[in-house]
Protein backbone atom coordinates (compact mmCIF):
# COMPACT_ATOMS: atom_id res chain seq x y z
CA UNK A 1 0.00 0.00 0.00
CA UNK A 2 2.82 2.32 0.86
CA UNK A 3 4.47 1.52 -2.46
CA UNK A 4 1.31 2.48 -4.36
CA UNK A 5 0.90 5.76 -2.54
CA UNK A 6 4.51 6.65 -3.28
CA UNK A 7 3.74 6.17 -6.98
CA UNK A 8 0.76 8.48 -6.63
CA UNK A 9 3.20 11.20 -5.62
CA UNK A 10 2.48 14.27 -7.73
CA UNK A 11 6.04 14.40 -9.01
CA UNK A 12 5.72 10.98 -10.61
CA UNK A 13 2.34 11.88 -12.08
CA UNK A 14 3.87 15.03 -13.51
CA UNK A 15 6.68 13.08 -15.14
CA UNK A 16 4.27 10.48 -16.52
CA UNK A 17 1.89 13.08 -17.95
CA UNK A 18 4.76 15.06 -19.43
CA UNK A 19 6.00 11.96 -21.19
CA UNK A 20 2.48 11.26 -22.43
CA UNK A 21 2.16 14.77 -23.80
CA UNK A 22 5.48 14.50 -25.60
CA UNK A 23 4.24 11.25 -27.07
CA UNK A 24 1.12 13.04 -28.32
CA UNK A 25 3.17 15.88 -29.77
CA UNK A 26 5.54 13.42 -31.41
CA UNK A 27 2.78 11.41 -33.04
CA UNK A 28 0.90 14.52 -34.17
CA UNK A 29 3.88 15.39 -36.36
CA UNK A 30 3.40 12.24 -38.40
CA UNK A 31 -0.22 11.19 -38.21
CA UNK A 32 -3.58 12.21 -36.84
CA UNK A 33 -4.73 8.62 -36.33
CA UNK A 34 -4.51 9.25 -32.59
CA UNK A 35 -6.74 12.31 -32.52
CA UNK A 36 -9.32 11.33 -35.15
CA UNK A 37 -11.26 8.82 -32.99
CA UNK A 38 -11.10 11.19 -30.03
CA UNK A 39 -12.35 14.04 -32.19
CA UNK A 40 -15.21 11.97 -33.50
CA UNK A 41 -16.30 10.95 -30.01
CA UNK A 42 -16.09 14.47 -28.61
CA UNK A 43 -17.78 16.00 -31.65
CA UNK A 44 -20.80 13.75 -31.15
CA UNK A 45 -21.31 15.42 -27.77
CA UNK A 46 -20.12 18.90 -28.55
CA UNK A 47 -21.44 19.77 -32.01
CA UNK A 48 -25.18 19.44 -31.21
CA UNK A 49 -24.72 21.66 -28.15
CA UNK A 50 -22.79 24.15 -30.24
CA UNK A 51 -25.59 24.18 -32.81
CA UNK A 52 -28.10 24.85 -30.05
CA UNK A 53 -26.04 27.63 -28.51
CA UNK A 54 -25.57 29.11 -31.96
CA UNK A 55 -29.29 29.16 -32.62
CA UNK A 56 -30.01 30.82 -29.28
CA UNK A 57 -27.33 33.40 -29.95
CA UNK A 58 -28.65 34.13 -33.42
CA UNK A 59 -32.17 34.55 -32.09
CA UNK A 60 -30.99 36.94 -29.39
CA UNK A 61 -28.90 39.04 -31.71
CA UNK A 62 -31.77 39.19 -34.19
CA UNK A 63 -34.10 40.53 -31.49
CA UNK A 64 -31.46 42.99 -30.35
CA UNK A 65 -30.93 44.21 -33.90
CA UNK A 66 -34.67 44.65 -34.44
CA UNK A 67 -34.98 46.81 -31.33
CA UNK A 68 -32.03 48.92 -32.36
CA UNK A 69 -33.25 49.30 -35.88
CA UNK A 70 -36.72 50.60 -35.05
CA UNK A 71 -35.54 54.06 -34.01
CA UNK A 72 -33.24 54.32 -36.99
CA UNK A 73 -35.98 53.19 -39.32
CA UNK A 74 -38.35 55.92 -38.12
CA UNK A 75 -35.79 58.58 -38.94
CA UNK A 76 -34.94 57.12 -42.27
CA UNK A 77 -38.54 56.72 -43.34
CA UNK A 78 -39.15 60.39 -44.08
CA UNK A 79 -35.93 60.78 -45.96
CA UNK A 80 -36.58 57.67 -48.00
CA UNK A 81 -40.05 58.73 -49.03
CA UNK A 82 -38.65 61.67 -50.94
CA UNK A 83 -36.06 59.44 -52.55
CA UNK A 84 -38.71 57.00 -53.75
CA UNK A 85 -40.16 59.54 -56.13
CA UNK A 86 -36.82 60.31 -57.66
CA UNK A 87 -35.95 56.66 -57.96
CA UNK A 88 -39.18 55.67 -59.64
CA UNK A 89 -38.33 57.93 -62.47
CA UNK A 90 -34.80 56.59 -62.68
CA UNK A 91 -36.11 53.03 -62.53
CA UNK A 92 -38.12 53.41 -65.69
CA UNK A 93 -35.00 54.50 -67.48
CA UNK A 94 -33.00 51.55 -66.11
CA UNK A 95 -35.64 49.02 -67.09
CA UNK A 96 -35.11 49.92 -70.68
CA UNK A 97 -31.38 49.36 -70.22
CA UNK A 98 -31.99 45.96 -68.62
CA UNK A 99 -33.93 44.71 -71.59
CA UNK A 100 -31.05 45.69 -73.77
CA UNK A 101 -28.55 44.03 -71.43
CA UNK A 102 -30.52 40.76 -71.38
CA UNK A 103 -30.54 40.71 -75.11
CA UNK A 104 -26.81 41.31 -75.27
CA UNK A 105 -26.15 38.57 -72.67
CA UNK A 106 -28.03 36.09 -74.76
CA UNK A 107 -25.91 37.08 -77.68
CA UNK A 108 -22.66 36.57 -75.82
CA UNK A 109 -23.94 33.41 -74.09
CA UNK A 110 -22.21 34.39 -70.90
CA UNK A 111 -20.90 31.33 -69.20
CA UNK A 112 -22.41 31.05 -65.75
CA UNK A 113 -19.70 29.05 -64.12
CA UNK A 114 -20.62 29.25 -60.45
CA UNK A 115 -24.19 28.24 -60.99
CA UNK A 116 -23.01 24.92 -62.41
CA UNK A 117 -21.28 23.85 -59.20
CA UNK A 118 -23.35 21.93 -56.68
CA UNK A 119 -23.15 23.49 -53.25
CA UNK A 120 -24.04 22.60 -49.66
CA UNK A 121 -25.03 25.24 -47.16
CA UNK A 122 -23.51 25.08 -43.68
CA UNK A 123 -23.65 27.11 -40.54
CA UNK A 124 -20.64 28.38 -38.59
CA UNK A 125 -20.81 26.84 -35.11
CA UNK A 126 -17.44 27.55 -33.57
CA UNK A 127 -14.21 29.48 -33.83
CA UNK A 128 -10.68 28.44 -32.97
CA UNK A 129 -9.75 28.07 -29.34
CA UNK A 130 -6.79 30.41 -29.74
CA UNK A 131 -6.73 33.94 -31.13
CA UNK A 132 -3.98 33.44 -33.68
CA UNK A 133 -5.84 31.66 -36.40
CA UNK A 134 -9.11 32.49 -38.08
CA UNK A 135 -10.28 28.96 -38.88
CA UNK A 136 -13.79 28.04 -37.93
CA UNK A 137 -15.95 25.01 -37.43
CA UNK A 138 -19.07 24.30 -39.46
CA UNK A 139 -21.92 21.90 -38.77
CA UNK A 140 -21.62 19.70 -41.87
CA UNK A 141 -19.26 16.75 -42.17
CA UNK A 142 -18.36 13.74 -44.26
CA UNK A 143 -21.83 12.26 -43.79
CA UNK A 144 -23.30 15.30 -45.50
CA UNK A 145 -20.86 14.91 -48.38
CA UNK A 146 -18.14 17.31 -47.26
CA UNK A 147 -14.56 16.28 -47.96
CA UNK A 148 -11.15 17.74 -47.26
CA UNK A 149 -9.95 20.24 -49.92
CA UNK A 150 -13.42 21.35 -50.94
CA UNK A 151 -13.71 25.09 -51.57
CA UNK A 152 -15.85 27.23 -49.32
CA UNK A 153 -17.57 30.40 -50.52
CA UNK A 154 -19.92 32.97 -49.02
CA UNK A 155 -21.69 35.99 -50.49
CA UNK A 156 -20.07 35.40 -53.86
CA UNK A 157 -16.47 35.32 -52.69
CA UNK A 158 -13.90 32.76 -51.63
CA UNK A 159 -13.80 32.05 -47.89
CA UNK A 160 -11.29 29.23 -47.74
CA UNK A 161 -10.90 25.50 -47.92
CA UNK A 162 -11.94 22.50 -45.82
CA UNK A 163 -8.85 21.45 -43.89
CA UNK A 164 -10.40 18.69 -41.79
CA UNK A 165 -13.66 16.81 -41.97
CA UNK A 166 -15.27 14.67 -39.29
CA UNK A 167 -18.58 12.83 -39.56
CA UNK A 168 -20.69 15.80 -38.41
CA UNK A 169 -18.33 18.76 -38.44
CA UNK A 170 -15.55 20.20 -40.52
CA UNK A 171 -12.89 22.84 -40.10
CA UNK A 172 -12.55 25.62 -42.64
CA UNK A 173 -9.18 27.27 -43.10
CA UNK A 174 -9.81 30.82 -44.30
CA UNK A 175 -7.73 32.72 -46.85
CA UNK A 176 -7.00 35.40 -44.24
CA UNK A 177 -5.22 32.86 -42.06
CA UNK A 178 -1.53 33.49 -41.62
CA UNK A 179 -0.31 30.29 -43.23
CA UNK A 180 -2.69 30.18 -46.18
CA UNK A 181 -1.68 30.86 -49.77
CA UNK A 182 -3.95 30.98 -52.79
CA UNK A 183 -2.92 31.27 -56.41
CA UNK A 184 -4.93 34.07 -58.01
CA UNK A 185 -5.29 35.69 -61.41
CA UNK A 186 -6.53 38.97 -62.77
CA UNK A 187 -9.94 38.45 -64.27
CA UNK A 188 -9.28 40.42 -67.43
CA UNK A 189 -5.68 39.56 -68.33
CA UNK A 190 -5.30 36.13 -66.65
CA UNK A 191 -1.96 37.20 -65.13
CA UNK A 192 -1.30 35.06 -62.06
CA UNK A 193 -0.10 36.11 -58.63
CA UNK A 194 -0.17 34.79 -55.08
CA UNK A 195 -2.55 35.84 -52.31
CA UNK A 196 -1.27 35.28 -48.79
CA UNK A 197 -3.00 35.81 -45.47
CA UNK A 198 -1.22 37.84 -42.81
CA UNK A 199 -2.14 38.10 -39.15
CA UNK A 200 -0.53 41.54 -38.89
CA UNK A 201 -3.08 42.91 -41.37
CA UNK A 202 -5.98 41.57 -39.31
CA UNK A 203 -7.23 44.98 -38.24
CA UNK A 204 -7.32 46.41 -41.75
CA UNK A 205 -9.13 43.34 -43.12
CA UNK A 206 -6.71 43.13 -46.05
CA UNK A 207 -4.53 40.29 -47.29
CA UNK A 208 -1.23 40.33 -49.12
CA UNK A 209 -0.87 40.02 -52.85
CA UNK A 210 2.58 39.25 -54.24
CA UNK A 211 4.58 37.76 -57.11
CA UNK A 212 2.75 39.69 -59.80
CA UNK A 213 4.90 40.25 -62.91
CA UNK A 214 6.35 43.72 -63.20
CA UNK A 215 4.85 44.65 -66.57
CA UNK A 216 1.26 43.87 -65.60
CA UNK A 217 -0.95 46.93 -65.35
CA UNK A 218 -3.14 46.70 -62.25
CA UNK A 219 -5.33 49.34 -60.72
CA UNK A 220 -7.16 49.63 -57.43
CA UNK A 221 -10.40 47.71 -57.57
CA UNK A 222 -9.31 45.21 -60.23
CA UNK A 223 -10.99 41.87 -59.65
CA UNK A 224 -8.90 38.84 -58.72
CA UNK A 225 -10.21 35.30 -59.02
CA UNK A 226 -8.72 31.90 -58.22
CA UNK A 227 -6.35 30.89 -60.97
CA UNK A 228 -6.38 28.03 -63.40
CA UNK A 229 -3.04 26.69 -62.18
CA UNK A 230 -4.08 26.11 -58.56
CA UNK A 231 -4.37 22.43 -57.70
CA UNK A 232 -6.84 22.83 -54.85
CA UNK A 233 -8.97 25.85 -55.71
CA UNK A 234 -11.51 25.72 -58.52
CA UNK A 235 -10.96 28.23 -61.26
CA UNK A 236 -12.73 31.56 -61.36
CA UNK A 237 -13.99 32.08 -57.82
CA UNK A 238 -13.85 35.73 -56.85
CA UNK A 239 -11.27 36.40 -54.12
CA UNK A 240 -11.35 40.16 -53.92
CA UNK A 241 -10.18 43.47 -55.29
CA UNK A 242 -6.64 44.75 -55.71
CA UNK A 243 -5.44 47.66 -53.60
CA UNK A 244 -2.21 49.70 -53.58
CA UNK A 245 -0.14 47.39 -55.76
CA UNK A 246 3.37 48.73 -56.22
CA UNK A 247 6.68 47.67 -57.71
CA UNK A 248 8.89 45.66 -55.38
CA UNK A 249 12.40 46.76 -54.53
CA UNK A 250 13.79 43.91 -56.62
CA UNK A 251 12.23 45.54 -59.69
CA UNK A 252 11.01 42.16 -60.95
CA UNK A 253 7.66 41.71 -59.27
CA UNK A 254 4.81 43.79 -57.93
CA UNK A 255 3.06 43.37 -54.63
CA UNK A 256 0.34 45.02 -52.64
CA UNK A 257 -2.90 44.26 -50.90
CA UNK A 258 -6.21 42.68 -51.69
CA UNK A 259 -9.60 43.53 -50.23
CA UNK A 260 -11.45 40.22 -49.77
CA UNK A 261 -14.90 40.01 -51.32
CA UNK A 262 -16.19 38.30 -48.19
CA UNK A 263 -16.80 40.07 -44.89
CA UNK A 264 -14.95 37.76 -42.53
CA UNK A 265 -15.90 39.63 -39.38
CA UNK A 266 -19.44 38.38 -39.33
CA UNK A 267 -19.70 35.08 -41.13
CA UNK A 268 -22.80 33.05 -40.23
CA UNK A 269 -23.46 30.81 -43.20
CA UNK A 270 -21.14 29.47 -45.87
CA UNK A 271 -21.53 27.39 -49.02
CA UNK A 272 -19.32 24.40 -49.74
CA UNK A 273 -18.70 23.54 -53.37
CA UNK A 274 -18.84 19.75 -53.52
CA UNK A 275 -16.75 19.56 -56.65
CA UNK A 276 -13.02 19.21 -56.16
CA UNK A 277 -10.32 20.49 -58.46
CA UNK A 278 -8.18 17.40 -58.83
CA UNK A 279 -10.78 14.83 -59.73
Amino acid sequence: MKKLSSFMNSKYILIALTALCFLFIGTSFFTDKLTTPLRNVVSVVVVPIQKGMNNIGMWLSEKYDTLQEISVVMDNNKELQSQVDALTEENNQLKLDTYELDRLRDLYELDQKYVGYTKIGARVVGTTSDNWSSSFQIDKGTEDGVEVDMNVIASGGLVGIISEAGPHYSIVKTITEDSSQVSAMLIDTNETCMVKGDIELMDSGLIHLHSLKKDVVIRNGDKLVTSNISDRYLEGILIGYAKDVEMDSNNLTQSGYLVPAVDFSNLQEVLIITQKKNQ
Partner: peptide, 9 residues
Protein backbone atom coordinates in the same frame (compact mmCIF):
# COMPACT_ATOMS: atom_id res chain seq x y z
CA UNK B 1 -8.47 18.76 -30.13
CA UNK B 2 -10.09 20.42 -33.12
CA UNK B 3 -7.84 23.23 -34.15
CA UNK B 4 -4.23 22.68 -33.23
CA UNK B 5 -1.69 21.11 -35.52
CA UNK B 6 0.42 20.17 -32.53
CA UNK B 7 -1.83 18.00 -30.41
CA UNK B 8 -0.52 17.79 -26.84
CA UNK B 9 1.29 21.11 -26.59
Amino acid sequence: LFFSGLFGF
